[in-house]
Amino acid sequence: MRHPDRQFEPTPDSVRASAAHAVEHAIVVESLSKTYGDLIAVNNVSFKVRKGEVFAFLGPNGAGKTTTVEIIETVRSPTSGRVSVFGMDVTTHKSDIVPRIGVLPQGFNSFDRLTVRETIQYYARLFGRRTSDVEGLIDLVNLKDKRDSLFVTLSGGMKQRLGIAIALVNDPELVFLDEPTTGLDPHARRAVWDVMLGLKRKGKVVFLTTHYMEEAELVADTVAIISKGEIVAIGSPGDLVEHNANYMYLTLKSADSSAIDAVTRLDFKPDADSRGDVKIKVSTTEDVEAILAAIKVTGRTLPGIDVRKPNLEEAFLSLTTDTGPDAHRLRRSAS
């Protein structure tokens, strides 16, 4: 796991090296803070996003995700710190950065009385792009059958896919997708994932903000977790799980009381569910071997066992426990 402080410690040297970062990094965030009066929304956040990677930004509601993303997108300005996109400062180079990024905002919405094609054409014109490319984008997000439907008549999934098409209308090098699958059914969600994986294959940088760990695990090269306005972990999904959920779950199928007693005698805490399956949190494979040996001694046989590594969701919960929405409102006095 790369801890944010170890990953990037801003110094005068590092500031001078920003141009060098730009070669390999699409985004460099250095000691970023954003406050609203006494409320600290983002507190001394630093991270980098490499070119060509899918970067997932996770965090509970109100953790500071959207504020951070909006500063990188140039629509908010930081209170302190420095953010650069492709080596350019977001506060002074908005007009240079905007043509190179695409944004799907959270809860994307558009003009009710425009059709799918007209909506994409409109955004293409804003970016000075050829409107002849519109059909390709419609195909990309699989909205061919709806190209002449008004926006107001589209389902939630279709609207999100249209939003993704619009985010790509200027052929951006960096795409921000803010909760692109929230509220979508499983089919629509998978369709959006396919689009994201397609972008990854094309070498685009994707900055994904999501609540869905499965989504981040599936598509992201790097995951950053923000909580209470601070980055609490950053690394690949595998690294995060390895370092923050360093245990396994052993499940004994239809275990009887003598098996449970044997497990308890080994100082493990078995957790039986309504179907009679018993779930035990263990640290190593030696623990699994010890439990199975103890059950064998009782002379009982088990219909089945299951050993499972925890996933990113468990790592996330471990990192953000006791940081519910109310806890994210850090006060200046408390920092």
Partner: peptide
């Protein structure tokens, strides 16, 4: 209210 201005702010407009 619909967030359209938020989206337009990320365009060259």
């Amino acid at each position: 209210q619909k967030g359209i201005l938020r989206k337009l702010a990320t365009t060259p407009m």
